[in-house]
Amino acid sequence: MKPRVLVLRTAGTNCDYETVYAFQLAGANTDLIHINSLIAGQTKVMNYHVLAIPGGFSYGDDIAAGILFANQIKYKLADQLVEFVESGRLILGICNGFQVLVKAGLLPRLDRGILQQATLAMNGSAKFECRWVHLEVKKSPCVFTQGLNPQIYLPVAHAEGRFTAPNPILDQIESNRQIVFLYISPNGYAPKYPDNPNGSDRHIAGICDSTGRILGMMPHPERFLTRFNHPRWTRERLPKGGDGLSIFRNAVDYAQSNL
């Protein structure tokens, strides 16, 4: 049986179509569900193996990016989601989804509770920016990134993507090997703007929880599924599949063999 993926949306979610497509391409059965349906109990999250929160501007990112969506999770769905995570299932948050997971306390989740320990703040450039970035895939327990190339290329598109936390928290994330993606400079130097597009602490682009089963990332893997998504496919020889596709395949493969 194909693994079942729930793509969770709400008012202002807008990367749902391509995220659903990415999971389908990776071989999952995917349902697109409004959070109202989850809160009303019409949909049971435990019927799924993977929960994905796609990009967008949930509730307009009013107050701060992802915070209203995060509060809905914290105050209305916390028990369900903790059960979901503790049962070994997977959660993926992309862009706004990452902001939601961090603000709901599901990442970095150093103490396995649901307490917010970091944030995604306004970009250093003080504006929304859409551009492609080079990423280093760190060695980590993250199940989504096993076997990925050591360097990948993905687009970012956000205004509030600067990952920041107090130094002791950052140290702990680092020593736990919870850093999954780092912004890097393609020529090997220390990344500066725009290689690090938002000024994130320690160039962090994505992190996982200590189990490696919850991943949050600012770059958009669902926007690089085929070589035609690459900004230079008309001038470079590229493999057929995009760097982002492996992340969805890993999730589906993991669910297939473990859940």
Partner: peptide
């Protein structure tokens, strides 16, 4: 660059 020209993935 201030416009999201990648959303919808197409």
């Amino acid at each position: 660059r201030q416009y999201d020209h990648e959303v919808q993935g197409g």
